[in-house]
């Protein structure tokens, strides 16, 4: 009998991604943009909230000639 293929788990909520990208924020305001945030990620000791992280990602893509596929 053929083994049933295991269904791939799709991460749909931020909480599912949290162990991969960062930690829940302990303070409501981001030190960078001052916006209220839900989570932070540290890259080389610099803290990025969910908004700032996207800005930084854009900077990396634009300045290093990276493609989004380099991150996958």
């Amino acid at each position: 009998m053929r083994k049933k293929k295991k269904k791939r788990k799709i991460r749909t909520r931020f909480e599912d991604w949290l162990p991969l990208v960062g930690q829940l924020a302990d303070k409501p305001e981001c030190p960078n943009c001052g916006e209220e945030r839900e989570w932070s990620v540290f890259i080389e000791k610099i803290e990025f909230c969910e908004h700032c992280f996207l800005d930084y990602l854009e900077f990396l893509i634009l300045s290093q000639g990276l493609s989004i596929f380099d991150f996958l």
Partner: peptide, 10 residues
């Protein structure tokens, strides 16, 4: 000049 986005505190 391009500055690092999202890193205002830094």
């Amino acid at each position: 000049f391009l500055a690092a986005g999202g890193a205002g505190a830094y």
